[in-house]
Amino acid sequence: MSSQTPLSAPDKLTVPGRGKGLIDVFRQRYLLKLIVKKELRVRYHGSVLGMMWSYVKPATQFVVYFLAMGVFLALGRNHPGYAVYLFSGMVVINYFSEILSNATRTLVWNAPLIKKIYLPREMFPVASIWVAMVHLFPQLLVLLVGTLAYGYIYQSPIPDFMMFARSVGAIFLGTLMVTILSLGLGLIFGTFNVFFRDSENLVDLLLLVAVWMSPVLYPLKMVAENAPAWVYDLYILNPVTIAVELFHYGFWLPITTAPEHMENLLAMTGLGFLVSFVFLLIGQWVFRRHEGNFAQEL
């Protein structure tokens, strides 16, 4: 009579190299923390300024765009608080661009580690989010100081508590929306980049036009007034556009009295999250379908 006993639930065999996707990433937060530290250490290795580049690069970008669009093309002449409007949109674009660009390349960058051991491969795109958040904070700090300075100089009305709470909520929702969308797209393009290195060049091309495809340099009302209705409807389906408007609501609107197309912002926010979650689900499906071949292709 055999003495073997059935395997208990915890001892059941699992398919090697297969996990539970993003769930495993959050279960192994300590490993994620180590990868984030490694990414930051590698990025600033041998750098004199180090984290100061988080201030220098967006500040330089802001000055260039402000001079070109706000001064030379005079968009800021009839747009109160244009500097705050511009920079609040650029913060969103910079955050989105950094996550998507790094998430697309991170699997290739970490090829030696992926080929040696098994760990949730989603760990690397998710680490790109945390690295981008480290760089997001200085930009938000500079933007907040600029917003308060503008309101003080031009004696804009101080928002009440409810307006302040709504502003903080809008900024949080905008950040969360961009995070979900960029992670979903990062999983998709990161998978493609393992097999086709042209994917990272395609992402660079998309990010090159991203600043023009959202109301960063120009007000949203210009699109509503000059584009056909169906073009405008497609335009506001872009979650980055909605996130930019949420940042405008959080930083720009409290210090201005200018009318803006924000009456439908709540509905737009719900739609933006729906689109973002769809991309996240697609990204996770594509990633898990092909991750078994990553080590071989890398």
Score class of each variant (00 low, 15 high):
N201D: 13
A224G: 08
G169F: 08
L281V: 12
G174A: 13
I171R: 01
V240S: 06
S167N: 08
T241K: 03
L205Y: 12
L271I: 15
G174H: 11
V278I: 14
F277N: 06
D204T: 07
A227V: 13
G184K: 01
D198R: 14
A165N: 01
W252A: 04
V286Y: 14
E260D: 09
L173K: 12
L183A: 07
S276D: 09
T269L: 10
S167C: 00
L207F: 05
R166H: 12
H261I: 14
M177E: 00
M262P: 00
D233C: 11
V209Q: 10
S167G: 09
F189W: 10
T257I: 11
T256R: 00
L181A: 01
V275K: 02
E245G: 12
T191L: 08
G250T: 03
L237W: 04
F192S: 09
I188M: 15
L187Y: 11
F277Y: 11
F164I: 07
P259D: 15
L217S: 11
A165K: 02
W230V: 01
S199W: 12
I236P: 07
V168I: 12
F195H: 07
I171Y: 10
I188N: 05
G270T: 06
M177T: 00
L265R: 04
A227S: 12
G186V: 03
V216N: 11
T241E: 07
V240M: 08
F189H: 03
G270E: 08
V275L: 04
T241Q: 05
F172D: 07
W230K: 05
L266P: 02
M268S: 04
N226W: 15
E225A: 11
W285Y: 06
V203D: 00
N226H: 15
F279K: 11
V178A: 02
V223R: 10
L183W: 13
T179D: 10
L181T: 02
F164M: 15
G190E: 06
M268T: 01
Y235R: 08
G283D: 03
M222R: 06
M177Y: 02
F277C: 12
T269H: 00
A165I: 08
T269C: 06
V168R: 00
T179F: 10
L265A: 02
A258F: 12
P254H: 02
L265N: 03
L246S: 02
F273G: 01
T256N: 10
E245C: 09
L271Y: 05
D198A: 10
L265Y: 05
Y249W: 10
F195T: 02
L202T: 12
M177L: 02
L217E: 09
L181P: 00
D233Q: 13
F172K: 01
M213L: 15
W252R: 03
V286H: 11
V286I: 15
F192W: 15
F247I: 05
